[in-house]
Design a protein around this nucleic acid. Structure first.
Lengths: 220, 220, 220, 220
DNA sequence: GATGAATGAGCGTTCATTCAT
DNA sequence: AATGAATGAACGCTCATTCAT
């Protein structure tokens, strides 16, 4: 492998495992077996190296997502596929999910991540709103659902360590990942079913918060 | 305010805004108006200071959660309250939510956070499994639901910046936070309704993934 | 001696002998026997250290010049004293003269030096113009004379190495420095005598350069 | 233009504008549009490149000076021409004058500059001493005069920035350069007139400095 | 409690130079 | 003649921490 790729590989691993700040260029050089100065020959600076690592992921992820959404099927199927693909990608790229999680929480590279994420979100939002008029506003507005499912998907990986201590099984095993996928799909079904039932015009809400939250569940 | 508290306050803010690694003791000293060496007089080291900051939050949060769960009401109501209280706490303590998010993603203080989080999770899990036999396993297993809702709750804050760019409104305004709470409650209702309907014994699943996921549609 | 002063002393010497760029903070630390980081404790950065060194010189120099100009005597005597004091100061502070020379030639600290120098120049200029109307313009305008004498004074030190090779004596010996002072005083007398003779209104000059330069010397 | 010349041109400009130490081979390569390694193909190292730049200047300057001194005329005329040519050369080659000024003040390339300068100085010195016996020693000794005029000539360029702030005009404009030349010529006349008047044997001086400097006033 | 001074380790980065092609 | 890749050394600077007072 070429030195540039060795550097990217090492940076990927360390950025993922330790975080951007805790990863020194020195250690990247050691892990990739190249001279410290060579990193700055191939990448302008540490920041640029980080973005190169990130871009590699988003390039692959976006290709996957595009291909997934391009395949035929009704919206429900396509959303399921979206969830599945996204989850599988994170499972295959745990470093990536850690990086995104960390940097999303007010990190220095938030903007870069946002630039990658927002278009995808926008596309999914439009899609949902076209099919489900009820998703234009209200309790199950598309943007709420998107954030929720994004949170469910990446949260699983973010908190996988806690989960391991909670259930005593490895949350990242193939078996558990499949179980998680089924859970996510089920949650999606619940939401989509509710959306389909919902009248497109959100009923007027009273100013009282407690009142607004009272009518719960279909059968409540 | 005493010097110790000034330090805690400054550390809180900087850890939240910039992250643990990017926050130097020098800046904490400057912001709190105390001598740099005094930090090490009151706290063994930077790590201990961080944990003091974190513990303060968890102390308050756990008191809130305990009080919330202690109040009368059926499980559905109590879970709603749990969600609401948790979300409100994060909204009131954005620094805390940022800290937790960052450090959960493989940070150095993961263990500390886990120690705080797991007991709460365990309690909620037991609660759900007692009421809903279906939550013992299957697509809507309690631990899946807990991770999902935890992800939905904190994810909203983690990705609030993206959300702002997505919908053009401030996701942290009181209005939007109320909308989010309604969304979360609704999602909880959907899940609990489904749990109530679910037979306690998960039907045997086939090995085929695609087959397992096939039966979709309303509460199929 | 206190560490701060040790640093200043070492920096002074190295900046003077090797120049700003060739002097590393590491070497300053070694020469002054302090820890490398201590330099940045006492001085914001290398630049600030340099300016501290420079300011120390200008503080002393300005005190000298002020005292010199304050003493009684006619202008001729005061100008002679100015020259003598300036020359003596440079002779006593060879590092300073080297620093000024180097940094004046488009260096990074030119501005700082200019800020120190211009006021002194302005004062001397006003002085000369008040006494000698002929110094307001023409071939012996005050600003020309000032630059010339400044060049003569500092040039002697700048090019002392060349001079040593030229005349085979040490230009910085007390004897040679006295000889130089006599030369400078003599040059000053020549200029002041000419100024005193000169009609205050500069004769109109023709556009032709060669013509303008023709009438040379009083007896030419 | 050939690569070698492009490099020389870029090095010239950067060495002049920024100084030797602040000029990196990388920037020379960028400015000249050649590969960084090519610089070391054409020049042994950065030092050799610097000397090549310097030598180019001295080659041209010495040719000029030789031609100037070779032209007929009495000594006074020839010295005027020398001053004029030198000043004009520096005015046309500001980078050169900055380089010489900086490196003369104890720089690493002092020796090289000295080797170029001393022969010229020696020639001019001999010339003066032959014509003016009084220039062999005393207050207006040839070497003193040479250093003084060299200082006046190059000092004008060294301190042109200060001068600009002092008089509010551009000291490097054609008009101001002409004025400076007239000043220099006038100063030369004053010195030469004095030399012509001076008895060849310097009168015995007393040990007292103040006494030695006392007899002032017009051609005392 | 509180502080100015001090320190060893490490940071990201740049440097002139070399080498294989 | 020219170049992309590589390197060891050094750069200015910041870090958390310690210590004497």
């Amino acid at each position: 492998m070429k030195a540039r790729d060795e550097i990217l590989e090492a940076a990927d691993r360390l950025f993922g495992e330790e975080g951007y700040e805790l990863t020194s260029t020195r250690r990247i050089a050691e892990l990739s077996g190249v001279n410290k100065a060579l990193i700055h020959y191939h990448f302008k600076n540490k920041d640029a190296l980080f973005e190169a690592v990130l871009d590699r992921y988003y390039q692959r992820l976006n290709a996957l997502l595009l291909e997934t959404l391009g395949r035929p099927g009704d919206l429900r199927e396509r959303l399921h596929r979206l969830i599945d693909v996204y989850q599988a990608f994170l499972a295959d790229n745990l470093n990536f999910s850690r990086i995104v999680q960390r940097e999303s929480a007010g990190g220095r590279h938030l903007e870069r991540i946002r630039d990658h994420l927002v278009p995808t979100f926008k596309a999914a939002m439009t899609l949902m709103q076209r099919e489900f008029p009820a998703a234009r506003a209200g309790d199950l507005a598309a943007y709420q659902l998107l954030i929720s499912f994004y949170g469910m998907i990446v949260g699983y990986f973010t908190f996988s360590d806690m989960l391991a201590h909670l259930v005593g099984r490895d949350p990242l095993s193939a078996r558990e990942l499949r179980a998680r996928r089924r859970h996510l799909d089920r949650m999606a079904d619940l939401a989509l079913d509710a959306l389909a039932d919902e009248p497109s015009r959100p009923r007027p809400r009273t100013a009282s918060k407690s009142a607004a939250r009272k009518p719960r569940g279909k059968r409540a």
